[in-house]
Amino acid sequence: MGENAQTRWWRQDGVGYVVIDNPPMNVLSDVNRRGMLEALGEFQRDGVRAVVLTGAGDRAFCGGADLKEEERLTPETVQQFLRRGQEVNRTIRELDAPVIAAINGWTMGGGLVLALWCDLRVGSTRAKLGAVGVKVGLMASNVQLARLVPEARARDALLTGRTLEAAEALAWGLLSAVVPPEELLREATAWARRIAARPAALVAEAKRALNRALEPEPGA
């Protein structure tokens, strides 16, 4: 259990919970990134079986990078900013426990990237996903989106930057389930418990095997 100014985390019945709490849009600050790394490190050490990642409130899962923080980046700090972001993504991927994103609202830009690096996504009917790079003159979530959905849909989302509502994200397979907002945490917990009930070593091996299977075959 722990917290910093914009992140809270705890564990209950073998499931770890991380909440991005940076109202109103839960934009991703460096404080969040450090909090997530600390939480995930703790969960890995404690042998947590499954993790639920969500945003505080019912407006946003994560609105993406903090634009004020990003505007201040210099050529020197931009690389560190990118490295820290990738460190969070890699930690999610390499964690033994599967990470379930509970998408409670707006999920844009860097927030979408974060959700796509998770192993599973369940959403509330208020979930709204957007690959908004083209709207702000950047590129993000291209690599993960292209690996999670067929390219026709990746092109649609990436080139238009349009908002995918919960129902469409479900139809695309980006969300595994959609439930009313008040049931989201219960639903995500049910998914986490289902995973936590299986042998931990087997789940961890399945996750590693899936990570490997998504890599191109060397020398093909």
């Binding site: 083209v134 003159g137 590129m139 291209n142 390219e151 080139l159």
Partner: peptide
Amino acid sequence: TVASRAPLSVQANKAALVHC
């Protein structure tokens, strides 16, 4: 919609889908 987006971003996304 696409014409209103940042052209360099659109091009970078198209290129990345092929390159990556």
